[in-house]
């Protein structure tokens, strides 16, 4: 479970990214965080991974305050969290298999374990036959599924997706979110997806939180995203 308690994030330039945010995300929940650019969606995700710290308030992950974790223990927190980015952040000089293997190498797993676990996860995202391809040889959807595979290979408790469909066409975007939904159903992990893709949000009927100017203005169970 992730809890935001009165969280405010103010950047040194004075910009308020989040203001008095109270939010609870239950285990196994799939959550869309929506809102226009600059609403604070990315900041919310960065606070969970401790890429940044709140100015005030606290964020609890399994009842432990994320902002109180000492610097040396941050890697342990991040091993419980998988992240998918809009720009994929894949290593272009590594194959699909090698990219997906990175989190397992970091965990110090043996080559035989890596082989087994990476193959299993590639099968899950339907990319096994592309294992030895390089990112440049893949379609947009395949690249994003590679990024998802890398994010889930170490079996994280939380999967954060920051605009994962931003650069994809509507059909591919829907496929990618289907993959995320399947992972959520099978692994029962928390999935937090930041997006401003109206069609996707409205199609999948998940919990929706709408952020505007750093504040939660709407939080609905099977919500919709309505723009002006």
């Amino acid at each position: 479970m992730i809890q935001f308690e009165q969280v405010t994030k103010k950047y040194p330039n004075g910009q308020i990214a989040l203001e008095d945010v109270d939010l609870t995300i239950e285990d196994g929940e799939f959550l869309f965080v929506v809102g226009p650019s600059g609403a604070g969606k990315s900041t919310l995700l960065k606070l969970i991974t401790r890429e940044t710290s709140p100015t005030s308030g606290q964020i609890l992950f399994n009842s432990q305050s994320i902002s109180r974790i000492p610097g040396g223990k941050i890697p342990q927190l991040r091993r419980k969290i998988g992240t998918v980015f809009q720009d994929f952040k894949l290593l272009l000089n590594r194959t699909v298999f090698e990219n997906v293997a990175v989190p397992l190498e970091v965990l110090g797993k043996k080559d035989s374990e890596i082989e087994k676990e990476v193959s299993a996860v590639l099968e899950k995202v339907d990319l096994l036959e592309k294992a030895s391809s390089f990112p440049a040889q893949l379609s947009g959807g395949e690249v994003q599924r590679t990024a998802i595979a890398r994010a889930i290979v170490a079996k994280p408790e939380v999967l954060l997706a920051d605009e994962p469909t931003g650069d994809l066409d509507p059909k591919t975007a829907r496929e990618v979110v289907h993959v995320l939904e399947k992972i959520n159903d099978e692994d029962k992990n928390i999935i937090v997806m930041a997006t401003h893709n109206v069609q996707i949000v409205n199609h999948f009927k998940k919990r929706v939180i709408v952020l505007e100017k750093g504040k939660i203005i709407k939080d609905e169970k099977e919500g919709k995203y309505e723009t002006d």
């Binding site: 991974t49 890429e51 040396g72 890697p75 342990q76 927190l77 991040r78 091993r79 998988g82 992240t83 952040k89 290593l91 990175v102 989190p103 970091v106 965990l107 890398r150 170490a154």
Partner: peptide, 16 residues
């Protein structure tokens, strides 16, 4: 730097 930032996000220690 890309590799370093990815390593950092997947939980690699500074030493790793």
């Amino acid at each position: 730097r890309d590799e370093v930032s990815i390593m950092n996000l997947v939980g690699a220690t500074r030493w790793y």
